[in-house]
Amino acid sequence: MSRLYKGFCETVGLLMANPSPGRQIAVVLRTNATQKLAQRLASRCAVAGIEIALVGGRGEIEDVRVPGREN
């Protein structure tokens, strides 16, 4: 498990453990591993009001959404 993957898990866990009245977004560098993890966590994060954004190497941003659901 990479440090990036582990850090992403910790970030989502902290956001879930400490809810905030404002907008919460977990932002992480996009890799194959973080992309797969983001897809697995998307529905749980959406229920908790957390958005996931993956950032590519050139700064492009990909919002991870639950298929068929408006966040």
Results as ranks from 00 to 15, higher is better:
34 T>F: 01
51 E>V: 06
25 I>H: 10
30 R>K: 14
64 V>T: 04
70 E>S: 13
54 L>A: 00
64 V>A: 07
46 A>Q: 12
54 L>Q: 00
32 N>S: 11
45 C>L: 06
15 L>C: 14
57 G>Y: 12
31 T>A: 00
41 L>P: 02
15 L>R: 04
5 Y>C: 14
15 L>K: 07
33 A>W: 04
2 S>A: 15
71 N>R: 03
24 Q>T: 07
61 I>N: 02
52 I>L: 14
43 S>V: 15
34 T>R: 01
9 C>V: 09
16 M>W: 04
36 K>L: 03
60 E>M: 12
47 V>T: 08
17 A>W: 05
70 E>Q: 09
23 R>C: 10
46 A>S: 15
19 P>F: 06
44 R>T: 14
50 I>R: 01
35 Q>M: 12
20 S>C: 08
68 G>K: 10
29 L>P: 08
5 Y>L: 15
22 G>M: 08
24 Q>M: 10
46 A>P: 05
35 Q>N: 13
38 A>R: 00
22 G>S: 14
4 L>H: 00
16 M>R: 07
49 G>L: 11
50 I>M: 04
71 N>W: 04
38 A>I: 01
14 L>Y: 08
16 M>I: 04
67 P>I: 11
25 I>M: 09
55 V>C: 07
2 S>V: 07
7 G>A: 05
9 C>D: 13
61 I>R: 02
71 N>H: 05
44 R>Y: 12
71 N>T: 03
17 A>E: 11
37 L>C: 03
31 T>E: 01
31 T>D: 00
61 I>F: 01
30 R>W: 05
58 R>F: 09
31 T>C: 00
64 V>K: 01
59 G>S: 12
40 R>A: 14
71 N>I: 02
66 V>D: 04
54 L>P: 00
42 A>C: 09
43 S>D: 15
